[in-house]
Amino acid sequence: MELIDLAMIWALIIGFGIVMYVLMDGFDLGQGILFPFAPDEDARDVMMNSVAPVWDGNETWLILGGAGLLAAFPLVYSVFLPALYIGVFLMLTGLIFRGIAFEFRFKARTSKYLWNWAFAGGSIVASFAQGVVVGNYIQGFNVENGVFVGGAFDWLTPFTVFTGIGLLAGYALLGSTWLIMKSEGYIQDWAYKITLPLLAAVLAVFGIISIWTPFVNPDVWDRWFSNIQIIWVLPAMTAFFAWVLFRSVQKRQDGMPFVATMGIFVFTFLGLVASKWPYVVPPDYTIYDASSAWESQLFLLLGLLFVIPVVLGYTAWTYWVFRGKVKAGVGYH
C-alpha cells in the first residue's frame, strides 16, 4: 500500500457515482414505470417532458459507473458483467428502447402508442435488471482466481427477482414524487394519490429484503448484530425520511416528497454498503483486492478532482434552467 489509501477514495467516488445515478436516472426511469398507469395521454406528455432535457445526462452516470469501475476496480467490472451476462443484455436493450422512445414518441402520430410501450417496457426491464444486480451483490459471486466460473443463469434466483421488484417500486416512488414537484392540477393529484401506496410497497419490500438477506448471506447478520451498533443509525434515518415523506404528502407539499424519497434511497444505499463493507466482489474480494494499479487510480483521480465539480456545476445549472412546472399541452408535439 502506498502513501494515500486511493482504494478508499475510489470507493467513495464510485459510491457517489452510483448514488447520483440511482437518484437521477431513478426518477426518469420512474416516469416509464408509471407510464401505463397515467390518467391520460396529456399526463404522459407532461411526464416525458419533465425529464426529456435531462435524462441523457442522468444516464451518463451509468456509463461513468461502468468506466469508473473498469478504471479503479477492474475486478468488479470483469466479474459482474460476465456473471450478469444475460441480465446486462436485458438492461441495455431496455435502456435502448426507452432512450429512443424520447425522440420518436414526439415525432410519431399513429404509432405513438407503440412508443408508449417502448418507453414503459424499456424502463421496467432496465429497472428490474438493475435491482437484480443489487441482489447479486448481496448474494455474492462464484469466483475462482479472479475469474467468474458460474453458469449463465446464476444471477436469477428468487432473492434477486425480489430485489429487482424492490428497485422497480423504489424507482416508481422517485418517479411519482418527482412528478409531484414538476406537475400541477389533476396530474399532480394523481401523483399524490399513488405516492403513499408506493411508499408502503417500498417499505414492505425493503423490510422483506432486510429479513431475507441474512438467510442468503449469514455474514450480513453478524455485521448488524455484532458490536458496531452505530450502523443502526442508517435504517433509522431511512425510517425518518419515510415519515417525512408521509407527512409531506399529507400536507401536499411540492418539493419535500422528492427530497424525502432521495433521503430514503441514500440511507438504504448506505445501509447496504454497511452490510458488505469492504467487500466489492462478495464473498471473497475487498476493495483492495479489486483495485487497479496505484498509478492508474492516481492518474484518473487527479483529473476527476477538477472535472467532476465542473460537471456537477453545469448539471445543476441545467436543472435550474428547466426548473418549475411542466405545463400540460405545451412542449413537444
Binding site: 435531462v54 441523457d56 445526462g57 444516464e59 451518463t60 456509463i63 461513468l64 468506466a67 469508473g68 473498469l70 478504471a71 479503479a72 477492474p74 467490472y77 470483469s78 487497479s292 494499479a293 498509478e295 492508474s296 492518474f299 484518473l300 483529473g303 476527476l304 472535472v307 467532476i308 460537471v311 453545469y314 448539471t315 441545467t318
Partner: peptide, 21 residues
C-alpha cells in the same frame, strides 16, 4: 484496465457529460 479504464473514464467525464447536458 490500468490503461483503458482511466482513458474511457476521462471520455465520460470530459465529453459525455458535456454533450448530454
Amino acid at each position: 484496465a490500468n490503461f483503458l479504464g482511466p482513458v474511457l473514464s476521462y471520455e465520460v467525464v470530459t465529453a459525455f457529460f458535456l454533450e448530454a447536458t
